[in-house]
Simulated assay, not measured.
Amino acid sequence: MRAVARWTVAKIGGAVLVVWIVATLVFFALRLSGDPLEAILGGPGSQAGEDTVRAAIEKYALDEPLAWQYLLQLRDIATLQLGDSFARRQPVADLLAAQLPATLLLAALALALAWAIAVAGSIIQAVSRGRTGIVVGAVMRGLEIVASVTPQFWLGAVLIMLFASGLGWLPATSAGSSPAALVMPVVTLAIPIAGFLSQVSRDALDEADAAPFATTSRSRGAGEMRVLLRHTLRHASLPAVALSGWAFGNLLSGAVVVEVLFARPGLGRLLQEAALSRDVPVVIGAVVVIALMYIVVVILTDAIELLVDPRLRARAASRRAPEIAVGS
């Protein structure tokens, strides 16, 4: 119980620290980019009267020292009072709630596709032997490197030109609810992540293939496919599982580019529009929500890794054993 309590406290403390750092950086970056009063009053060239200007200054405490405005912002975040959007005049919480499902769906589908590609690549290389295996392995490694370094905005533009403008198979924008509208955004997000996960899985698979448990299984008459599916593939997936939290965070950041490129509604597009208009409440709210989602995914990834890898459970048990001995 003590170990669980310490783990929980550590995760909560880490989450609070991340949110505080993110909120601090965003707050001061936006303030350095320009006067928020301009954004509140509707942008450059606003014809707001003196009473309107005075009311806006009092409402948002813009006449207070910057340090006090910063503390007020932290208080609002801690109490989940994100306020109203400067530009849209709507509660920030409502805006985020409306756009969050679309971004989560996009990121989840992209992560699932990236994993499917990585696993398929690992299986193809594992079942290829001899000279054919050398050629297949070299081709797969080349594809992994190219995929992992491909910029998402370039890949998305190429897909639009090929499948939308050229062949006309898919819609160029994904503002609609059609499943076909999700294909190109999901592929654009998934390909770079798939390349990285494939490299990690392949290296782990090579290591597992030469491990004693794989050799013992073969000596007992197990075929290569059986060894792969029952032993080495699970072992090889562990490093990639550990990196899934990072991958999901990368997908959330990539959603900003993809949602703008494909005119898709979502949290990333909302964040981009709010940043351009210096809509401080929306930017801070969106960034904090993204940070919290990343933390939750990392915690879930840690839990899944603990369930999948018996070695981690053994280490946790060995750490608890001295505590039990001391307590008794």
Rank of each mutant, 00 (worst) to 15 (best):
G268F: 00
M184L: 14
R264A: 01
V227E: 00
Y294V: 07
P65A: 02
L104M: 07
W154P: 07
K11L: 02
S178H: 14
S85A: 14
V283E: 00
I324K: 14
N250F: 00
Q99C: 05
V53R: 15
L109Q: 06
G45W: 10
R131D: 00
A325C: 03
P179H: 12
L17F: 13
I123L: 06
L307F: 14
Y70S: 09
S33I: 02
A211Q: 12
P91S: 13
V308K: 14
L62T: 06
A175N: 13
W115T: 04
I117K: 08
V297H: 06
Q81A: 11
L104K: 12
G195P: 04
S219L: 08
L238C: 04
L170Q: 12
L17Y: 13
L113Q: 03
E207A: 14
A56Q: 11
V296F: 08
V119A: 14
R226D: 02
S277Q: 14
V158M: 14
D309W: 01
V19P: 04
A87N: 14
L104Q: 09
I77S: 09
R315C: 00
V4F: 15
E64W: 06
A29E: 00
S85V: 13
V227W: 03
A93I: 11
W169D: 10
I284V: 15
V326Y: 05
A242C: 09
G268W: 02
V260C: 10
A316T: 10
Q69D: 00
V127I: 06
I324F: 10
V92F: 11
L100N: 03
D203Y: 11
L25W: 11
A107M: 06
G142A: 03
Q99H: 15
A107C: 11
V146E: 01
G34Q: 05
L182R: 09
D206G: 15
L271G: 05
L109G: 08
R54I: 08
G268M: 03
T188V: 05
I191H: 09
E224V: 02
P212N: 10
V260M: 09
F213S: 11
L71Q: 12
A321M: 12
Q90E: 02
D209F: 12
L74N: 10
I299F: 12
V241I: 13
T173A: 13
S277T: 13
V288P: 09
R234N: 11
R313M: 06
S174D: 01
A23P: 01
L228C: 09
R278Q: 01
K11C: 00
F163Q: 10
V186K: 13
P65R: 10
A61E: 05
H231G: 09
L267C: 03
A23T: 13
G327Y: 10
F196T: 05
Q272G: 14
P44T: 07
F196M: 01
F28A: 03
A210T: 04
H235T: 10
A3F: 12
E58P: 07
D209L: 13
V241E: 01
M184T: 11
K59C: 07
I160Y: 11
G221T: 04
A97L: 10
S85K: 15
Q73C: 10
A164W: 07
L74E: 02
V256C: 06
V297Q: 03
A114W: 03
